[in-house]
Design a protein around this nucleic acid. Sequence first.
DNA 1: TAAGATTGAGCCGTCAATCTTT
DNA 2: AAAGATTGACGGCTCAATCTTA
Lengths: 149, 149
Amino acid sequence: MDEKPCEATILAWSRLVRAGQAVFGSVEDDLKAAGLPPLGWYDVLLELRRAGGALRPVEIEDKLLIAQHNVSRLIDRLEKAGLAERRACKNDGRGQFVAITEKGLALLPTMWPVYRAAIQKHVGHQLEGAEAATLASLLGKLIAPAVAR
Amino acid sequence: MDEKPCEATILAWSRLVRAGQAVFGSVEDDLKAAGLPPLGWYDVLLELRRAGGALRPVEIEDKLLIAQHNVSRLIDRLEKAGLAERRACKNDGRGQFVAITEKGLALLPTMWPVYRAAIQKHVGHQLEGAEAATLASLLGKLIAPAVAR
DNA sequence: TAAGATTGAGCCGTCAATCTTT
DNA sequence: AAAGATTGACGGCTCAATCTTA
């Protein structure tokens, strides 16, 4: 097991960080230009809708791999924007439920076309044929260890 | 030219963001665990050394694609840590020079072994054979448009 | 004691405004 | 007016501490 990375590994590292930040930033820019909230909001609202409308903060934490205190503040912002709201948890007095509001449900189909077009513009259009699938497969190998750990 | 991304593109997008953040975070964690400064500091100090010891802030901006005001604050931190220092620019009264200090020069060889091992651990070890080169090549296609724009 | 969640302090990046020099 | 650079205000993340309930 080598301790030192080869040239190709260093190049892959460098481009991974650069491409990740560049593409993410470009997609967020497109959302912002359309007057829409950032990706983090979309992710949470989507999980809430998928779950039937509500989740415990700790479940959001697990699904999206966000730290507890960051989930807490993200919910603050969603609540302030009227997109979600906190409700007491009957089973567990310590916990809460976060529920998506009508306004939050209405936001998702507004964001998706812009989000989708941005992904196609900044990722899809740059790759040909099976390249996207190959890229996804290789990136999957880099994500797995973090999950398994 | 499709407006909608295919499934493989969406998966590539999702994993690109996740892998980029996960790998970057893991490498930064390893540096922090060794009591070393973040990657951004290394990048600037390395460019300064490569340039023979000093650069204009605007050159750092161009080489590392960092916004002007962020370069300004990054230099503040490096200066406060005694790793770099500001000097007046003789040719252009508006500008300045940022010079790496002895302490800054000494830091680079301290960081590299840890940085290098982290890259190998979080990228190199997860890929086999020519996979790193393939990944680097595909990621290069995603970076190019941002540069060309 | 541990789990769920929040809060205050501090760091870093972004936006807009500002200052100096060209 | 434009370029190089800085600054103040603010948003979001991280650390450590805190609070409540299990």
